[in-house]
Design a protein around this nucleic acid. Structure first.
Lengths: 321, 321
DNA sequence: ACCAAGGTTTGACTTTTGTCGAGAGCCGTG
DNA sequence: CACGGCTCTCGACAAAAGTCAAACCTTGGT
């Protein structure tokens, strides 16, 4: 930096422009710089989180359907992204909504647990910047080998960066080749502390993975397609933070899970706000499993998925009566 | 309204524009309306608090001076508005800052106590809109006769309006002619409940009044200039929520105070965050009194006032040693 | 002392946004 | 059922904001 006009000037410009409502050229005059610079500073201010532009996500919770889903599944809050595309790329719609919701849920001083996956990374990627103080973002599960780009540590770091928060990574592989080694690693102080700290989180952000050949676990090489199929027949219904869960949302008793380094589901359940985001319609079963397991208090889904959830709940209650 | 496109459309437009980052003409296309309408909706969205643009007030707390004041007076947080005008009208600068700070301190579900005065009204007036849910704004003290425009109920209502919150007014005169009547009124359920509810607040916003002929109490006819002078010689040092306090920040034992309907200082002290805003440099003594009385945990002042505070603190500590 | 690299600043240009008055649809009322 | 009064809507213009390449410092290395 030249003479580090950075922070100070950016802040002043942002202040005059956004708080006082001056025009850019007025700001330029006050600060004795060119209007072009002001424009640039303002962009930086937005990118740094010095100014915060957020839009209320009310509309998406106020929806009747959202209320029904809340009631049917006893969730604290549900947001439904209207599928009836009023936006160019509907697939990012859920992510944009999720990012807004996330930012609305975060408070200063919070500790946030973040899992991994395409969904989470997409959210991180489009999330706007904020200036939360004393926020810590912790990684919920071990890392995966290189080939894939939505690595747990990347998700954690990226979100921490956007929030101006501290990122707490831990470097252990997500899955090891033997159970004994996994146990050993889990006992390692660095790892143990990290995992123990998960239950102290105020907010968790994750998605749920499908149990099929398209799963990240397969793509990353943690499991072969064949193993995945086998797990499925053993009752696997979804993947949470790298762990395979059954239809009740409990850890599936299988060799793979015993070799995984990740936060225990009990720790996750101890987190007050568990924000789950599901983009793909194909993840219906996994989502049901996650909800059944109490792994989600706050939910962001598309309209289509919401309908399926309601249908399911309706059918279930009819059968019960 | 034609077919009440209001909420829904405004919200969608705001969403596409601010969250998705589309341009106005793109939004117009999506929504099948003209760009001009979009521009109008967006303005409404901002005015309704559907979108929130806030700028961090960090710069003003990060200041060295602010830290010193915090330490010297044991305050939780201090914001200093630089007097060295880098803005056209420096007097509103403090108010703008105060409004931002206020919005930063408010949380969803909060209960907020608001006093009255020019300062408070100015803040309310320039405060941007927000969409806080479940916020209640309560009036801290009785009302004043008509002539003056910064009436307690107006301040309360205006702030409530900006926040999309519920305003809780109570209609009693600030000061009565006899002590007996005041006592009677205070015992009245409507009034008593309101006053009792003050200590449940999470945040208070007020300024401190001067004890001179310019005081609002005089201008509003609650006191004559002569009475004010008399109070001054009895030890009056400032005015908080309509009550006269002495240099220690305690209620002055005088006839006037006994006739006032207002929140007790003890209730005010029970409020976690007490945000005091002082615009005028002449209110030095009153401010000292308020601080001494523990009536302020968060403070917004101008640079000049901050200097005087520090000088005072420095002198006091020197004398002590 | 000179040069290259990196970042900042600027003026000129383009795109985007704000605004205004006119027109159009809807309602309650006489 | 025609009439103001009302708000919403639109097109066109003016204003403001965004962008870019070039000029310009500052710094650190050679």
């Amino acid at each position: 930096m030249a003479i580090r006009p950075a922070e100070q000037l950016i802040h002043k410009a942002a202040w005059l422009y956004y708080a006082h409502g001056l025009r850019q050229d007025e700001v330029a005059n006050q600060l004795k710089i060119s209007r072009a610079s002001v424009a640039m500073y303002l962009r930086k201010a937005r990118e740094t989180g010095i100014v915060n532009i957020s839009t209320s996500t009310q509309l998406f919770t106020d929806d009747v359907m959202a209320r029904k889903v809340e009631d049917a599944f006893k969730l604290d809050a549900v947001w439904i992204a209207p599928e009836n595309a009023y936006v160019a790329d509907p697939s990012t719609d859920i992510a944009v909504l999720a990012a807004s919701v996330f930012l609305e849920l975060v408070k200063k001083g919070d500790r946030i647990g973040v899992a991994w996956g395409r969904t989470v990374y997409t959210i991180a990627d489009i999330m706007s910047y904020a200036d939360l103080q004393d926020v810590t973002v912790v990684q919920l599960c071990g890392n995966l080998g290189a080939p894939y780009s939505y690595r747990p540590d990347q998700c954690t770091m990226e979100i921490a960066r956007r929030l101006n928060a501290k990122g707490l990574n831990f470097y252990a592989p997500l899955v090891l080749s033997t159970e004994a080694l996994a146990q050993g690693l889990r006992a390692e102080p660095v790892i143990r502390d990290q995992l123990a700290g998960v239950s102290d989180c105020d907010l968790a952000l994750y998605s749920v993975g499908a149990v099929d050949a398209d799963s990240h676990l397969v793509k990353c090489g943690a499991l072969t397609p064949a193993e995945m199929t086998a797990l499925r027949s053993q009752g696997a219904a979804g993947v949470i933070a790298g762990q395979v869960i059954d239809a009740n949302g409990e850890v599936l008793d299988c060799d793979y899970n015993r070799r995984v380094i990740s936060a225990e589901l009990a720790s996750l359940r101890a987190i007050e706000k568990r924000l789950m985001v599901v983009q793909e319609d194909t993840k219906f079963e996994p989502l049901l499993a996650a909800i059944a397991g109490g792994l989600c208090t706050h939910l962001v889904v598309g309209a289509h998925m919401a309908e399926r959830l309601l249908d399911h709940a309706g059918a279930a209650s009819k059968k019960a009566s």
